[in-house]
Write a protein that binds this DNA or RNA. Structure first.
Lengths: 154, 154
DNA sequence: TCAAGATAGATGCATTTGCATGTATCGCTG
DNA sequence: CAGCGATACATGCAAATGCATCTATCTTGA
């Protein structure tokens, strides 16, 4: 395996790249979460509904969801409590693992996700589409996917 | 001014791009904040020290700092309280605006920032540098800067 | 120049978060 | 197959966060 020391310029480039990725995410997120759609439901809670809506089976384990969001396990547990109290999701015991909890959207949860989602995707498009050409967006998509894939397997 | 309606594929591309940018940020941030350096100081508090350390004058207004972080004004105010109580920063009144507060690093704040910064930049490099080539990193840097610049002036 | 609205930052209070820990189930090993 | 460490999720509690509001200062316009 390769263990050559990184040059200081390589370290600097990586740091600047991350810094810029991070700040751009902050700038975009700030705008998005200020949108009127997120008066109904905080964006972090929406994100869980969204994640469930994208899942082919319609149900996900809490630990799988936890990998997608920047929240501790206990915070996610209580966030799901809130969603459940509002009747937007339902917990059920994972059939293949008695410790696990499967989370699924209720009818009301699906509807609210779609409703917020329509506004949200419009806000995203207004912010991102005019900032970068289609080709630049495809590049950015590819690079962030590659970065994420690497980080996930480490 | 141009007001042509975006095509649905353009909307979809923008949404996927943002989603990927966001998830990659979550994945990287999760790793970074788990680093041992952030036992000493939470990453959000470090970020304020870092921002101050990068500033040519060494001092910044609270509202300027607030633009860089994903925190409400009141949360930043109290975060700065904590930093001040630990002797890492000092508040002073902005000379040109009696309402404004200038924040600067103390000696101890500079030292702690450098100390954490050394570990932090190493973690970043270990995560980002092997994931993307130097050219890819330069592309990602350029694209996220462009996105951020657009969002900032909107 | 002074009154009215705007802006910067601080603070009370309810909500959200994370850490440490608890409970239950799983999987492995002897 | 019994026991023991590991894993999944929940919960008590202290700390952090955001919203609404407050105070102080600035800016504008009559």
């Amino acid at each position: 395996m390769s263990t050559k020391a990184p040059t200081s310029s390589a370290v600097r480039l990586a740091a600047e790249t991350w810094e810029s990725l991070f700040r751009s995410q902050v700038a975009v997120m700030r705008r998005l979460q200020a949108g009127p759609a997120f008066k109904k439901l905080p964006i972090k809670e929406y994100d869980v509904l969204f994640t469930l809506s994208r899942c082919p089976t319609g149900k996900l384990r809490l630990n799988e969801i936890n990998d997608h969001v920047l929240l501790s396990q206990s915070s996610l547990s209580r966030l799901v409590d809130r969603l459940e109290k509002r009747g937007l999701v339902e917990r059920s015991i994972a059939p293949d693992d008695g410790r696990g909890i499967l989370l699924g959207l209720t009818e009301a949860g699906q509807e609210l996700q779609k409703e917020i989602g329509r506004e949200h995707i419009r806000d995203i498009a207004e912010l991102v589409a005019p900032a970068l050409t289609a080709e630049e967006q495809r590049d950015l998509l590819r690079l962030t996917e590659k970065l994420q894939a690497f980080v996930a397997n480490k």
